[in-house]
Amino acid sequence: MKQFTTGDLNIQIGDITDAASREPVMLTRHKKPRFVLMSYEHYERIRAGGDPRRAYHISEMPGEHAALFDEALDQLARGEGYDNEP
Rank of each mutant, 00 (worst) to 15 (best):
H65D: 07
T17A: 02
P62W: 09
G79E: 06
G7V: 04
M61D: 08
Y40P: 14
G81V: 00
R53M: 10
A55D: 13
G63P: 03
Y43P: 11
R34L: 15
L9W: 03
Q3L: 02
Y43R: 06
L37G: 04
I11S: 01
F69R: 03
R22P: 12
R22H: 15
M38I: 12
A19N: 09
L9I: 08
P52R: 04
D51C: 01
G81S: 04
Q3D: 02
I58K: 14
I16L: 12
D18V: 06
M61N: 09
G79Q: 08
A72H: 14
I16M: 09
I13G: 01
S21G: 05
M26S: 04
A19V: 04
E80W: 04
G81L: 00
M61P: 13
G81W: 00
A48V: 00
E60W: 07
Y40A: 14
A48N: 13
F35A: 14
A20I: 02
I13W: 10
D15V: 08
Y56P: 10
E71R: 14
D83Y: 02
G49V: 05
R47Q: 15
R78K: 10
M38E: 15
L37D: 00
M1R: 03
E41V: 05
N84D: 10
Y82R: 08
N84Q: 09
D8S: 08
E41S: 06
N84E: 09
G49C: 02
A77D: 12
I13D: 04
K32G: 02
G63N: 06
D15A: 12
F4I: 04
L68K: 07
E60D: 15
V25Y: 03
N10E: 05
G49A: 02
M1Q: 04
R45N: 12
R47H: 15
S39T: 07
H57Y: 10
D74N: 12
A20Y: 05
R54C: 11
R47A: 14
M38P: 11
F69H: 06
A55M: 15
P62K: 10
A67R: 14
D51I: 04
G79V: 08
Q3Y: 02
M26C: 13
S39D: 07
M61A: 13
I11P: 02
V36I: 13
T5F: 00
A55Q: 14
G49Y: 01
E23S: 09
Y56G: 07
R34H: 13
G14C: 03
N84H: 05
R45F: 12
R29K: 15
R53A: 08
P62L: 13
G14Q: 01
A48P: 00
Y43G: 11
Y43D: 13
R47M: 15
H30Q: 11
D51W: 00
L37P: 06
H57N: 11
A66Q: 13
E71F: 11
M61W: 06
K31H: 08
K31P: 01
R78A: 03
I13Q: 07
E80S: 06
A67I: 12
D18E: 10
M38A: 13
G14H: 08
Y82L: 09
A19C: 07
T5V: 01
A48I: 01
G50W: 01
K31W: 04
E80Q: 14
A77H: 08
Y43C: 12
A20P: 09
S39K: 06
